[in-house]
Amino acid sequence: MALYQSLDGFPMASDMVGLTADQWDGPRFGVGIANGHIVPYTPPMPVISLKEQASHALSLARSYIYSNYGILNEPTPDSWVTYLKALMAIQNGTDTTSTSLPAGPKS
């Protein structure tokens, strides 16, 4: 703290956690503070709803289909149509029973 000309805005020293030289020089990521001690920490992963996953998968599938079939004015294979319809049903809420995304076509 001696680096600073003023300690205004800093917490009281009793509320801070001291670091060893190894902790100071060590990684700054993957650690947190619990009960006044430095501990390993992995932040929780955000929960992405099935609807959001379907929306993203639908966007990717549409791009793939256009690039591989639409741009060539070729018909979209039935397996891709079925996949798109399943994703659209999840995205728009008409499919209320699925708990995971459908498997995409092999090609």
Rank of each mutant, 00 (worst) to 15 (best):
M1N: 08
A2Q: 12
L3H: 06
L3T: 00
S6N: 13
D8Y: 06
P11G: 07
A13C: 03
D15M: 06
V17R: 12
G18C: 04
L19S: 08
T20L: 09
T20M: 11
D22F: 03
Q23L: 04
W24D: 15
W24E: 15
D25E: 12
G26H: 09
G26R: 06
G26Y: 10
P27N: 14
F29V: 12
F29W: 07
F29E: 14
F29R: 10
G30W: 07
G32C: 06
G32Q: 14
G32T: 03
I33F: 11
A34Y: 13
N35M: 13
N35G: 11
G36K: 10
H37I: 00
I38Y: 09
I38K: 11
V39E: 14
P43Q: 10
P43K: 08
M45S: 13
M45H: 07
P46M: 10
P46S: 06
V47N: 04
L50A: 01
L50M: 03
K51W: 02
E52T: 07
A54G: 07
A54T: 07
A54Q: 10
S55L: 01
A57C: 01
A57V: 01
L58Q: 12
S59I: 00
L60Y: 08
L60F: 07
Y64N: 00
I65W: 03
Y66M: 07
Y66S: 04
S67M: 12
N68K: 15
N68Q: 14
N68H: 14
N68S: 08
G70Y: 04
I71V: 11
I71R: 13
L72I: 09
L72Y: 15
E74I: 05
E74F: 00
E74T: 14
E74Q: 15
P75E: 11
T76D: 01
P77H: 14
P77Q: 13
P77D: 06
S79A: 10
W80P: 01
W80R: 13
T82C: 00
Y83Q: 02
L84V: 09
A86R: 15
A89V: 05
I90N: 05
I90Q: 06
G93H: 09
G93M: 09
G93P: 10
D95K: 07
T97M: 12
T97N: 08
S98Y: 10
S98F: 03
T99F: 02
S100Q: 14
L101E: 05
L101N: 08
L101D: 04
L101W: 10
L101A: 01
P102I: 01
A103L: 09
A103Q: 12
A103C: 01
P105W: 10
K106H: 00
K106P: 00
S107A: 11
S107K: 14
